[in-house]
Simulated scan of single mutants.
Amino acid sequence: MSETTRNLQPVTANLGKEGSGELVPSRYAVRVGDVDVVVISDGVLPLPTSTMSTNVSEADRNEWFDGRFLQRDMFDWALNIALVRSGERLILIDSGVGDGFEYFTRAGRSVMRLEAAGIDLAAITDIVVTHMHMDHVGGLNVDGVKGKLRPDVRIHVAAAEVEFWKNPDFSRTVMPETVPPALRQAAAKFVKLYSENIVQFDQTVEVAAGVSARVTGGHTPGHCVVDVASNGEKLTFVGDAIFEVNFDNPEWQNGFEHDPEVAANVRIALLNEAAETGALLAAAHVAFPSVGHIAKNGEGFRFVPVTWDY
């Protein structure tokens, strides 16, 4: 890969008006029955490819990345959030990485892109946090964001997740050394800022008609996914349960997983579920817009992206 390709930056241009207009697509909408879902890109996180496959050989990992014309050392990890409208309720799923991380300069765009889409943060009635890693709560930690949200916004977080971050265990993770302290700091700041808004739940919670969160564990003890179901149609936002490499290799473990074996079992169960039901799937770290179907492919799976509806 050439140095020019390696250093490509997001494309922006002045489109006949003051300020910069982004030329890259950053949101994609899909209707699930009577419920509207919009996936929004927060940007990309450059991370070592080794974190994508901690339990396999370097040769196997290189073969997968080579086959996709990607670098062998660093990987642009997509970061997506979602917005769901069900009746009178407007639900935000995760919030992106926010700011303050000098090594994540190409992410942290969620709030800007919500506002660019005409979304008033004060209109959000509920927020579901799939888990409390910094790239999921960081957007809520940005200065000024809390003041734009309604004072009674409900933030749904699994009780197991809140408990875990009181004294998090990183003994089974394989992360860059700068990451665990940043994760601790982001989680602590989130709880401090929003303690009065956090609504804890055990296994499942109905957030709105047709929108529910269910705990899967694995990635973190209280990691949850969000199911959107209406009129016989379904989409599941799986958070960090599934990564780009896992369609071909569902057993490959990720360095950010706090319980890798459980995470792999959760991943395979979710992939089987989607393949058997035909439901749509979207994820935090699958290339934007990350919406598609799952088909079984031998011992692995195949991701079938939706055809863009123009």
Rank of each mutant, 00 (worst) to 15 (best):
T4N: 02
A158Q: 08
A13R: 05
M112F: 15
P221C: 08
N246T: 09
G67D: 13
A187V: 03
S2M: 01
D66I: 01
A241L: 02
V286Y: 00
P10N: 04
F201M: 01
P221I: 06
D73A: 13
D120Y: 01
A283S: 15
F256M: 14
P46T: 06
H223Q: 12
M175I: 12
D94S: 15
A213T: 01
P289G: 07
V238I: 11
T204M: 04
G278C: 03
S53L: 13
A287H: 13
V199E: 09
K189F: 02
F69M: 15
T54Q: 11
L193W: 00
V211K: 11
M1I: 05
K234Y: 05
F243C: 09
E161Y: 10
L114A: 09
M175H: 04
S53F: 12
G138I: 09
F190M: 13
D34Y: 05
V157M: 03
E276G: 00
D248C: 12
M134I: 03
F201I: 00
Q71G: 15
G255H: 07
D99E: 14
V97H: 10
A160H: 03
V199P: 00
A123G: 08
D34A: 02
E251M: 04
Q185P: 00
A287V: 13
L270H: 02
D135W: 15
A229W: 00
L47H: 05
I268Y: 00
L271E: 08
D76P: 10
D248V: 02
N254F: 14
H156G: 09
A159C: 00
I198D: 12
A287R: 15
G239M: 10
T173K: 04
L114K: 06
T54A: 08
N197T: 08
P168E: 12
F303E: 02
A282N: 08
A29S: 15
G239I: 09
R106I: 08
V84D: 13
T54F: 03
E161T: 06
H133R: 11
G300Q: 04
I81V: 11
E257L: 02
N141W: 07
D120A: 10
D152W: 03
Y310S: 14
R172I: 02
G232Y: 10
A59L: 11
A283M: 11
G239K: 14
G217A: 14
A123I: 00
V37R: 06
L70W: 14
P305H: 12
V32W: 01
G278T: 09
M134N: 10
R72V: 09
E58H: 10
V129L: 04
D36V: 06
V44E: 07
R109H: 06
P181R: 03
D94A: 12
F237W: 04
F243Y: 15
N14F: 07
L8D: 09
W308P: 04
F65W: 13
